[in-house]
Design a binder for these strands. Structure first.
Lengths: 185, 185
DNA sequence: GTCTATAAGATGATAGAC
DNA sequence: GTCTATCATCTTATAGAC
């Protein structure tokens, strides 16, 4: 792996752990084992590097979601697999966490990939729910877009509760809560 | 209002807008209209001031939740009122957002009031759901603690989706999604 | 209680040698 | 491509006058 990729990966880790405001170019360089000159040769600055890192993390997130959502099984079964998949709950969501970063949200260029990722994730879940509704798993009256938003929100909010409590328990509870509602629907 | 209270209120605003890492003592002083000497006279430093600010915001949040949750009406009706209450969605949750702050989560003293607030909120919702279950609004088999976690998670995650999209729409969708599941339950 | 002065270290880059 | 200065500014205080 080249120095450029090392820099991107180190930035991805640090953005996940500390956010944009909490991540300094120096910290990125140290983790990547690169000097200042090297970093500023490959990237114009912190912002450009963050953009590359966020885009890569977004690709990874959507690919991981596809693994369960595009798999075999019923719609509700695939969504259950997705929600129950193993996660590093206490680390939170590498994309969702960026919405709490003032410098990310205030900058249209940095916010764009965050927005696009979560919007696509909701769209993908909506598709799965549409299939489930067509197959009779869900009532004809189901608002699939709203349900998709609720499911993604439970994930994102579950991370928040788990990090507050310093245990994955409330995340698991939230997932169980929404799944039992879904099953009874 | 005294200088001390001004400092706390300015810190509350800045923690909400920029988080702990993104908030400097200097910014607090400027917003409060106080000098350095004044701030360090009233508080030992940034951490102590943040602790006072978080505790006050926590009190406000729980009192606001009680307004709908302890009001009249059925359990599901009160929860609907709570979820549909007017909110500054794009600003996010002043307590929940702190879970994305590495210096907050890493410090047991700073994390404690965040944990306590969200835990109490879930407990309060669990009580309301227990009443609803006893009154026959919900099935006897309902796991009220899990449902409470899901409801709080939808709020916290709804904020995340709204901030990513820069519009309250996905927040409202997520709330609608969970409420329609709850109604059909 | 509030003010100004001072300070060691971090931040986010730029410049130019190699 | 990578390295080592260098730099202006910000950060988080402490010290002591008023």
């Amino acid at each position: 792996m080249g120095t450029r990729d090392q820099l991107i990966d180190s930035t991805r880790e640090l953005l996940w752990e500390r956010g944009y405001v909490g991540t300094s170019p120096k910290a990125i360089q140290q983790r990547a084992g690169a000097g200042q000159g090297s970093m500023y040769h490959h990237f114009a600055g912190k912002k450009e590097l963050a953009l590359a890192a966020v885009r890569r993390s977004a690709d990874v997130l959507l690919a991981a979601a596809d693994e369960q959502l595009r798999g075999p099984g019923t719609a509700v079964g695939r969504i259950t697999s997705y929600l129950r998949r193993e996660r590093e709950v206490l680390k939170g969501c590498p994309i969702g966490r960026l919405t709490q970063d003032p410098d990310i949200v205030a900058d249209p260029v940095l916010r764009a990939p965050v927005d696009e990722t979560l919007t696509r994730l909701r769209a993908r879940l909506t598709e799965v729910l549409d299939e489930g509704r067509a197959a009779g798993e869900l009532p004809d009256t189901t608002d699939t877009a709203a349900l998709a938003a609720a499911i993604v929100a439970v994930l994102q909010g579950g991370y928040v509760l788990a990090r507050a409590a310093n245990t994955p328990e409330p995340f698991d509870q939230a997932v169980s809560g929404v799944l039992s509602l879904l099953a009874a629907h």
